[in-house]
Amino acid sequence: MGYWYLAIAIGAEVMGTIALKASDGFSRPVGTAVCIVGYLIAFYFLSLVLKTVPVGIAYAIWAGMGIVLIASISAVIYKEIPDLPAIIGMLLIVAGVGIINVFSTSAAH
């Protein structure tokens, strides 16, 4: 269940971060509320993940996937298109997450 909880935590963190921009510095109540709820859900599920997945592995996956998803969604919603170095960097992050999941003996499956 740890990796399912991690997927929920990542989704909630992405939702919270996208809403953070929409909150306009916490001046818009709906964006602010979505941001806070998103982060609360993310941290709750991350706490469940850490019962079965090592913290370093969980955080690497959470952060890496969050970066890529947020950049992708913000490109669509906010028209914040990453340049080539940013895209290459994100591809390296995805490769790193893949290597962790496929080859790491510390990742609990």
Rank of each mutant, 00 (worst) to 15 (best):
G2N: 06
Y3M: 07
W4I: 15
Y5W: 15
A12I: 04
M15H: 04
T17C: 10
T17I: 07
T17P: 01
G25K: 11
R28F: 11
P29H: 13
V30E: 13
G31V: 07
T32C: 10
A33F: 15
V34I: 15
V34C: 11
V34K: 09
I36G: 05
V37Q: 06
V37L: 13
G38H: 01
Y39D: 05
I41S: 07
F43W: 12
Y44C: 13
L46S: 06
L46I: 10
S47L: 12
S47A: 15
L50H: 10
V53F: 03
V55H: 12
G56V: 05
G56P: 00
Y59I: 07
A60K: 03
W62E: 05
A63Q: 11
G64L: 04
M65E: 02
M65Q: 06
M65I: 15
I67H: 05
I67C: 07
I67L: 11
I67V: 13
V68F: 12
V68T: 10
L69G: 04
S72I: 08
I73Q: 04
S74E: 01
A75Q: 06
K79G: 05
E80R: 06
I81K: 08
I81C: 10
P82Y: 02
D83N: 13
P85R: 10
A86N: 11
A86K: 14
A86T: 12
M90P: 01
V94P: 00
V94W: 03
I99G: 08
I99P: 01
I99A: 14
I100C: 08
V102D: 07
V102Y: 13
F103D: 10
T105A: 14
S106Q: 15
S106N: 14
A107Y: 06
